[in-house]
Design a binder for these strands. Structure first.
Lengths: 210, 210, 210, 210
DNA sequence: TTCTAATCGAGACGGTACGTCCCGTCTTGCC
DNA sequence: GGCAAGACGGGACGTACCGTCTCGATTAGAA
């Protein structure tokens, strides 16, 4: 929808319609910034489109011209936020350090309070909205699972893991304990926890592969 | 709040106020049933107190006489729902089978769609409401962590795990991968997954304890 | 719709539903007063429901609980205003003085700036809304035409006018020149004008009857 | 404002600016036509500038380049409409037939539904806008009153009316009953009504002059 | 003919008001 | 006092227009 086209953005607009008017990047930026700020202050449920518009110095219609609903806007914003921080598959040369790097990467992204807030909020909507669920899976979860898969593959190639290892399990173990702890338990996860977790995951993967 | 006093309940009322009338159990039950039904149909965010009252054939005031807010009601309801299904520490005589039983227990509770819906919904509010966070931790998370701790202690007593094992890690590993998968990824978790997970956790705990 | 039932009004409410809640007279009164005030200040087209609600210290919903739209509200209010000032057929014993009294009565009602404002405003809507047109004719115009008819009949009974006189013409002549002058030309109409008009109408009726 | 300059119109443009472009007659015509059509369909209050622009296949700016507001446009359009049908003072040689001709002329103009619609709509605005009121009086009412005055003067010159006759009364009687009937009562006015009215006015003027 | 400036269609912009929905509270009359 | 019904003040929703502004693409008068 409002995923800015890079070419257009250089021209200060986002869409090019022959003879028509284009959404203005400055306005989109102001809205985006205001939305993230409101989100950080009040959370998804309490956030109002009117407050975002007011904060951005923008009419409500400018929001609805870009997104068809409050939820649509948040979905798009979180998509941008997580895409801007795409996880790179770490390649440190050893499974253990790869795991540690991956866990640190997940932690780093979830430590952003706005990302955490929006993800938590969207979880509540997933059941009601298949499109939202798909987006979350595709844009948020898949790249992270892919990174986990790559990490496992590299370990197999190095001979650290047998080829029979369960790749899905690997993805779950890299994301879930940390995610659960940070998003749900509101718990902290220091370097020691990550180190312990990396050790456990490594052993778990090897054991489950047999 | 409205946590029904057992004594009063046997008398058909819930609270006893000197000289006044008591909240009627029939009304409370009708509300509870209606609330769970609405919850299952529309989810937390879209659920309205007015719809609950209408469905229960009850005035809105009857709801607010029992709970001080929509969120308060849901918190209380989910508390009841999870307390009705308190996890017993499994004692099968072996760590692996204990883990398998615990994972199955977690799966069983999260398989209830209303429980899943409310939990997901409440996650969104956790950041804004410390009391809610506390309740969720105390009533929902702690008993489950306690069960995981007991399971680990039994394994230590049997000599299956060294005494140095990380109990917190154990709790995380029992709850998180399954919870993440079911609540967030909307994924399924069949017996094979649980078996694999149990194997991985067992190995992970042993490795991390060293 | 909100035409207050006298019985209920004495009880402070307007509608009585078994077991239900009734619209409160105090609120209705506050809205009515605020609406007339806004009307007088800004006119129909520029008047906003939000301003009325604000001025009345009332939620917008309170307005829409009583009337289904801005226009519906105004129609109802003007109906009340003109019904509260129903014209009595004058009976002074002579056609000329009856005419003079009738003209003065019309002038008195149109001199109310809120009545004048609302009538002018509603005229603009008449074409688009048959129900509104009907209401205006039935509630506003008919009683006034009936008064004119009675006046003519009395004159016939007294022998001042022949039985063949055109009653419709009489009604037009009593209402139209004054109404046009006051509503449309924004002109004033002093006693001398009324006297002249009464003389002209009397002669006109006699001439047209022949 | 945008009252087309006849000279420029012959050249296909309306205004001449040094070095620049002029408002194009084709565009103005398309707007005018679309505006009257929208007016006829939806009335003044419900008519939107956006709908006019869309219907005319024109940008909104083209409208606002010509008129400064919706009301300004309508005022201008109705001015054109009534000026295109300027009343000529009838001169049939007798007061009665002059009156009959004048009444028929008024009827003819008010029978145009767009004219009737716009006049009704503008009445609602008169109180709020002095300039509009002035325009309506000057452009719409004055020529008609002037025609009535001329008619009366001719009758005086012929000796049909005494010099003391009230000219204002004459104008009121020629315009008001018909206008009221047609604009406000939505009533019809056939030839018989006009004949009766002419008779009554003639007698009324003579009586009131004494 | 070439330059150049205002007009053009399209529609985004900041606003205001619409009529709707729901929150949590209050009011009424019955039990 | 609880209860059913639902009105209350409040606030956000998403929509429709207002009158203005911004594009790039004509278009026509002046050079």
């Amino acid at each position: 929808m409002a995923t800015a086209d890079a070419e257009a953005e250089r021209m200060g607009t986002e869409r090019t319609a022959s003879g028509g008017a284009a959404l203005r990047t400055r306005v989109t930026d102001a809205i985006t910034e205001a939305a993230f700020a409101e989100l950080a202050e009040t959370g998804y449920a309490r956030m109002s489109m009117e407050a975002v518009a007011r904060r951005a110095g923008v009419g409500k219609a400018a929001l609805y011209r870009r997104w068809s609903s409050k939820q649509g806007m948040l979905v798009d914003l979180i998509r941008q936020a997580v895409q801007d921080a795409l996880p790179q598959a770490p390649d440190t040369g050893a499974l253990h350090t790869d795991l540690r790097a991956s866990l640190a990467n997940v932690r780093g992204q979830l430590a952003n309070p706005m990302v955490a807030s929006v993800i938590r909020s969207l979880l509540a909507e997933v059941r009601q909205d298949g499109a939202l669920a798909d987006m979350l899976l595709t844009v948020v979860a898949q790249p992270r699972r892919a990174a986990a898969h790559a990490l496992v593959q590299a370990a197999i190639d190095r001979g650290e893991l047998p080829a029979s290892v369960d790749r899905e399990l690997a993805a779950d173990l890299v994301i879930a304990p940390l995610g659960f702890r940070m998003l749900i338990m509101n718990g902290d996860s220091d370097d020691a926890y990550i180190e312990t977790l990396a050790t456990a995951i490594e052993a778990g993967l090897k054991a489950a592969a047999r």
